[in-house]
Simulated assay, not measured.
Amino acid sequence: MSFICPLCHAPLKVEAKSYRCPHGHQFDKAKEGYVNLLPVQHKRSKDPGDSAEMMLARRAFLEAGHYDALRQAVGEALSKALPEQAEAVLDIGCGEGYYTAWFADIAAARGAQAFGLDVSKTAIRFAAKRYPQAQFCVASSHRLPFADASLDAVIRIYAPCNAGELARVVKTGGVVITVAPGPRHLVQLKGLIYENVLLHETDNETLPGFRRLQQSELGYPMALTGNEAAALLQMTPFAWRARPEVGEQLRRQDIFHCETDFCLRVWVREA
Score class of each variant (00 low, 15 high):
A109L: 14
P132E: 13
C137E: 05
F126E: 07
E228I: 05
G24P: 04
L166C: 02
A147I: 11
A10V: 12
E96Q: 07
T100N: 04
I4M: 07
Y67T: 07
L37I: 09
P11N: 14
L207I: 05
R143E: 03
G209M: 11
C94H: 07
R251A: 07
H185W: 05
A114P: 07
G247C: 01
G49R: 12
G173R: 10
V154A: 05
L186S: 09
F27K: 05
G174N: 08
D148A: 13
F210Y: 01
L7T: 12
A109W: 06
G93F: 02
C8R: 15
F256M: 02
N162K: 13
G33A: 10
E32Y: 12
A167I: 01
A149Q: 14
G33I: 09
A69F: 05
T260Y: 02
M1S: 14
D50T: 13
G209T: 14
R265G: 01
V74N: 10
S45G: 08
D105C: 11
Y19L: 02
V74C: 13
R241H: 09
Y131I: 10
E76C: 12
F136T: 04
N204T: 15
F262A: 09
L144W: 00
S120F: 14
S140I: 01
Q26D: 10
L250E: 00
C258R: 05
G209C: 08
S216F: 13
P208C: 01
V246A: 00
R241I: 01
E87L: 14
L224A: 06
A180L: 11
E201G: 15
A88N: 10
L37N: 07
H23A: 14
V138A: 06
V169M: 00
K43H: 14
R265A: 00
E87V: 14
T206R: 12
G174M: 04
M222P: 06
D148E: 14
E96I: 05
L151W: 03
Q26A: 11
L218G: 01
P6M: 06
G164I: 02
L7E: 08
S120A: 15
A147P: 06
A60Q: 13
R243Q: 09
R110F: 09
G95F: 02
P6Y: 06
P160T: 08
E245C: 00
N36Q: 05
V170T: 11
K80Q: 12
R212A: 07
R251W: 04
E259M: 12
P145Y: 02
L264S: 10
R269K: 11
A10N: 15
V187F: 01
A159N: 03
M54D: 10
A128H: 05
P244A: 00
Q214A: 15
G75A: 11
L224M: 03
R71E: 12
I106N: 13
R211S: 00
G191F: 03
C263A: 10
F256P: 02
G95T: 13
K46E: 15
C21W: 11
S141Q: 00
T172K: 11
I155N: 03
R211A: 05
R130Y: 10
V266H: 01
M235A: 07
V40H: 12
R44T: 15
W267G: 05
